[in-house]
Amino acid sequence: MIDKQCSDSQLVLLYQTGSEEAFELLLHRHKSRIYTAIYLIVKDRYVAEDLLQDTFIKAVNVIKGGRYNEEGKFLPWLSRIAHNLAIDHFRSNKRHPEITLEDGSHVFDSLQFSEDSFETIQLKQDTKVRLRALIKELPEEQKEVLIMRNYLQMSFQEIAERTGVSINTALGRMRYALINLRKKMVTANYNAYDKNFYSTRSDEAPLPRDLSRGDEGN
């Protein structure tokens, strides 16, 4: 039985030496973030499922092939694989957009058409779906940074390098992404977002979480 507190690096080592349980832990630890990030880029649930599989299969092949040399950086490495696959799909789809039917053999995977997917319409009241829809409405550059930082867990420095901008630009895009998202949440009357609480008078504003615990945030 593996300790669930094991670091990613320890789990990779255990998997390399034959522990299936270690890989299962890695998969369960990261599948949701990676899947969400891919989905927000490709905007199609079925494509996201395929790309999630491709991401982990690629990771497994590299690890089991003895070519893994990212000690201590498993998640950033996995995130890069997922991001590359999702962006490749996004670009090829942009060049060759397809409009197909949901007849079991084809799905909506065109960027233009996936915005109003059947799922989104059916689950309009679902707040999670609504927030994901709001994320999709963000300007492309802001959305890209938000997905890379929040779901793929890349550092701002790495995002800057991967997107070819300065770190200040990456930070600025993230800031505007959150500000715009907040505006959209207020406008859309997003249920889970308590706008009354977060727009209290400045002298009533709660302390940042770390400060209120007396923790200096180290």
Binding site: E20, F23, E24, L27, H28, K31, S32, R33, Y35, T36, Y39, A48, E49, L52, Q53, F56, I57, V60, K128, L131, R132, I135, L146, N150, Y151, R175, L178, L181, R182, M185, A192, Y193, D194, F197, Y198, S199, A205, P206, P208, R209
Partner: peptide
């Protein structure tokens, strides 16, 4: 605090891949 609240919301909207996909990978 506003930014922190939105970040928390973003963490809450994570999607779960279907079990079939997880099983395929495993």
């Amino acid at each position: 605090n506003e930014m922190a609240a939105i970040k928390k919301e973003l963490d809450n909207v994570q999607m779960q891949p279907p079990d079939s996909v997880v099983k395929n990978i495993l």
